[in-house]
Computed example of a mutant assay.
Amino acid sequence: MAVEHVTVTEDEADIRLDRWFRRRYPNLTQGAIQKACRTGQIRVDGKRAQTSTRLLPGQEVRIPPLPDVSRPAPPPPPDPLTRKRLESMILYQDDSVIVLNKPSGLATQGGPGIHEHIDMMLEALRPEGGDKPRLVHRIDRDTSGILLIARTPGVAAKLAAAFREREVEKTYWAIVTGRPNPAEGIVDQPLAKVGAGGGAVVVPADRKDEEAVSAKSAYEVVDAAARKFSWLKLSPLTGRTHQLRVHCESLGTPIVGDPRYGGEKAHPEGFADRLHLHARELDIPHPQGGRLKVAAPLPPHMKETFSKLGFVAGSTPEPTRTPK
């Protein structure tokens, strides 16, 4: 391999130098990158640089002959059936993001016993010569609704930062058994994970428990069928695994159809035995400026339950993007 000089793109702004290398050369070890920087073989704009150097668009990176830099094999051609299936889920797309309406029962990522998931399917949306689109966040396998996808690594990094800095507003709809009292409020209940793998569960925890993590969720009763069932609007103020499901159970009103939490109370007769939790709206700072707001229509099993209980969801608003 001869010496190369590569210009940093806009999409690669603020990425660390070592991560920039690993994107291009996955087989290159961190140790090899560190050595090449230490000896001055890797340079940025002709100057020595550390692995932690943050790159700027337009800078030129010197790539010397390095060991184990073989590029990965080209990805297989897109599967037309998988691509068509993904395209049927798209609620919104532009040059930066794709927003999907994930069906209940389809996993976001792989794991024990999972043979099909969104992350794997995204290979079908890879543009020729470009990057595979990337997940920005996750929702549970049994939860339906909005899932945000970044088209490039740079966009993924910007959106991940927005989630960390709590600049993202997420709204979920749920059908629960019973009616919370009071009808709205904030659940401030730390959680802890018990077990491992696919059998792990999340439980309420004492604040003094070393394994506990802070978890807060806002809730509001939108409508109720007597005191037997309620339609809740939920907003996770933190992002913990199964947070909304456990917090609803802690209110004494488990989500209908929950396969893991709520026991028999979560499985009333006459209703679809599927989780009635739906990621309804997402409001994010758009990577190119302004904000993007997208809503997802209800899945079939929740539409049926809404009709049975007399709840009126109304029409789903079209995606909107405010100017910079």
Rank of each mutant, 00 (worst) to 15 (best):
G145Q: 09
G145R: 10
G145W: 06
I146K: 07
L147S: 05
L147Y: 00
L147C: 00
L148R: 01
I149R: 03
A150R: 03
A150E: 07
A150H: 01
R151L: 05
R151E: 04
P153D: 07
P153Q: 11
V155A: 08
V155E: 01
A156D: 01
A156I: 04
A157R: 14
A157Y: 06
A157L: 11
K158W: 03
K158C: 13
K158T: 11
K158P: 03
K158L: 15
K158G: 04
L159K: 05
L159H: 04
A160L: 13
A161I: 11
F163Y: 14
R164I: 04
R164A: 13
R166A: 13
R166T: 13
E169D: 15
K170Y: 06
K170S: 07
Y172E: 13
Y172G: 07
Y172W: 04
W173A: 09
W173C: 02
A174P: 02
A174K: 03
A174N: 03
V176P: 14
V176Y: 10
G178F: 05
R179Q: 10
R179N: 02
R179P: 02
P180S: 03
P180M: 03
P180V: 06
P180D: 00
N181T: 01
N181F: 02
N181W: 06
N181Q: 05
P182L: 06
P182G: 07
P182F: 11
P182Q: 08
P182K: 02
A183N: 02
A183I: 09
E184S: 07
E184T: 01
G185H: 01
G185T: 03
I186M: 05
V187A: 11
D188S: 02
D188F: 08
D188L: 01
D188R: 12
Q189K: 10
K193V: 13
K193I: 14
V194I: 14
A196V: 01
G197M: 12
G197Y: 12
G197C: 11
G198W: 05
G198N: 09
G198A: 15
A200T: 03
V201W: 11
V201L: 10
V202Q: 15
V202I: 15
V202C: 09
V203M: 10
P204H: 10
P204I: 01
A205P: 04
A205K: 04
A205T: 03
A205G: 05
D206S: 08
D206Y: 00
R207A: 13
R207I: 02
R207W: 12
K208Q: 11
D209P: 04
D209E: 13
D209K: 07
E210T: 13
E210S: 12
E210F: 15
E211V: 08
E211H: 13
E211G: 04
A212E: 12
A212F: 11
V213G: 07
V213E: 15
S214A: 15
S214V: 14
S214C: 12
A215Q: 12
S217H: 06
S217V: 03
S217T: 15
A218H: 11
Y219R: 05
Y219K: 07
Y219E: 00
